[in-house]
Every structure is written in structure tokens, then in C-alpha cells.
Simulated assay, not measured.
Amino acid sequence: MILAHGAGAPADSEFMERLSEALCAEGVATVRFEFPYMERRREDGRKRPPDRAPVLLSRFRDVIRAVIEDPARKGDRIFIGGKSMGGRMASLLAAEPDLAGILAGCVCFGYPFHPPGKPDRWRVEHFGRFAVPVQIIQGTRDPFGKQSEVQDSPLVQVDSCGIYWLDGADHDFRPLARQPETQEQMIANAARIAAGFMAVRG
């Protein structure tokens, strides 16, 4: 899986490290990369807003191309995915017809259905155009799209993708304090769901 980071944290953030390790434990190799704005942040330490979508998608496509052309990856089934914004970019590529014969599927970890507190600004206009199978793994308390909001919205075409709900989890898959599960266990569960999806769809 080519795995993209979210808007505010780099490819080696604690969440991304844990997710990659959990996917590896499920037999899924991951390739992580960073978008241009995050690379510049590493160089000078200055926080920046994400690049615009065309720049993000161009970098994502470059990484897909590099992975496909890597002799060590020959014969591998290629999935794309990402955390939050990275997952949204992956889903946009999953709706591109020219990638249908290249990608086996897409997994989004904490999809940003809308900005927090703004459920009138949905980011699902491309859901009806997916060219490859898509799986979303979402916390029921995620402020970017709670279970009640997503299930009640007529804009979300849930038949175009699968949505698995992590009970009690927030955007970073942190559970409620009263829950017996830890964040690490939630992430491990997300990795199991992703691996199961990939095994069936690949």
C-alpha cells in the first residue's frame, strides 16, 4: 500500500508509524512518502498549509509510477491509501479511470467527509465515480464525519464504497477513556480490516 500522510503530520508521525507497523503485521507492505509542502517543512522547520490538490495529486501519481516501475515490486498488487487528507487524495485518484488497470483498490483511514463543525461542506462529490474498490475506516466520533452524520446524509453514496466504523474512536482512532480498547488496538483493528479488504479485492 502506498500510504499518504494527513495535512498536519508527516509520514513518520506516531500515527503513521503505528499504522505502518500494524499493516506490516497483517502482511501488508507499505510505501510512505511526503507531499511537497511537508518536504519544505522538513528543510526549514516552518509549518505550511497543504499544497493545492493538483500538486498533491501530481506527487501521489509520481510515487505510484515509481512503485510500479520498481523491479522489486514487480508482480505486487498495488493499493493506495492515506490518513485524513492523504486518504482523500487517494480516493480522488481512485476515481480516475486511467488508474483502474493499475491500482487494485484504495483504503482511507479517517476520511475527512467535511471540515469539523461544517457538515454543510461535504467532500464526496467524486464518490459515485470510483474506478477501483474503496474502503473507508472511520471512527464513530470523528469530527470530520461522525457515524450519524454520514449515515444520515443523502450526499454520501455508501453503495460506492465500504465504510467500517470503529466504535468510539475519534479522527486519530483514539477511543473514549471509559473504553477497554487503546488507540494502538484501534489502529491494529483498522489494519486488520484493511488487510481483509485487500485480500478480497486484490
Rank of each mutant, 00 (worst) to 15 (best):
W122Y: 15
Y37E: 03
E69Y: 09
R59H: 12
R46G: 08
E184W: 03
F33K: 07
P119Y: 07
S58H: 13
R88E: 03
E26Q: 15
K146M: 14
A199H: 09
G82E: 01
R88F: 02
K74D: 14
A22K: 00
V200L: 10
E14V: 09
R32V: 11
I2N: 06
D51S: 04
A100Q: 13
E21R: 10
A72W: 04
R192D: 07
R61Y: 03
I102Y: 05
D62L: 05
K83W: 06
R41C: 04
F15N: 02
A131Y: 07
R46T: 14
K74L: 11
A4K: 02
S84T: 09
D12K: 11
G117C: 10
V31E: 03
Y164H: 14
W122D: 03
L92H: 02
A53H: 06
H126Q: 14
R121D: 13
T182S: 15
S20E: 13
D44C: 08
V134S: 05
P50C: 10
V63Y: 07
V28I: 15
E26M: 05
S84H: 08
E17K: 14
H171K: 11
A29W: 07
P154G: 06
G101K: 06
K83V: 08
P116E: 15
A72G: 02
M85I: 06
F33V: 08
L155N: 05
D44K: 09
R121V: 11
Q147W: 02
P36E: 08
I193H: 07
G105K: 03
A191C: 08
A22H: 00
S13A: 15
A190C: 12
M38K: 13
G162K: 02
L56Q: 02
S13Q: 10
L99R: 11
G196E: 15
L93F: 06
F35P: 00
G87V: 04
Q157M: 12
P97W: 13
E69F: 06
R32F: 12
D98T: 15
R201F: 01
F144Y: 15
A66L: 12
A190L: 06
C24N: 11
P36S: 05
D76Q: 10
C24V: 05
A131R: 14
P119K: 13
A199D: 11
F127G: 00
R52K: 13
S160W: 04
G162I: 01
F79G: 01
G202K: 09
F113M: 08
L176F: 07
R41T: 14
L176H: 12
S13M: 11
W122H: 11
A190T: 10
H114K: 12
V31C: 05
R88M: 04
P71L: 11
L166H: 02
L176G: 10
F15S: 00
V124W: 00
I136A: 05
G82M: 01
L176S: 12
I64A: 04
G101A: 07
E17V: 14
C24T: 12
A22T: 01
A169C: 09
P10G: 13
V132L: 12
I68L: 14
L99H: 13
V200D: 10
A100P: 11
G87F: 06
S84F: 07
T30P: 03
A94V: 07
R18L: 09
A90R: 01
P133T: 01
D44P: 05
I68H: 06
P133D: 01
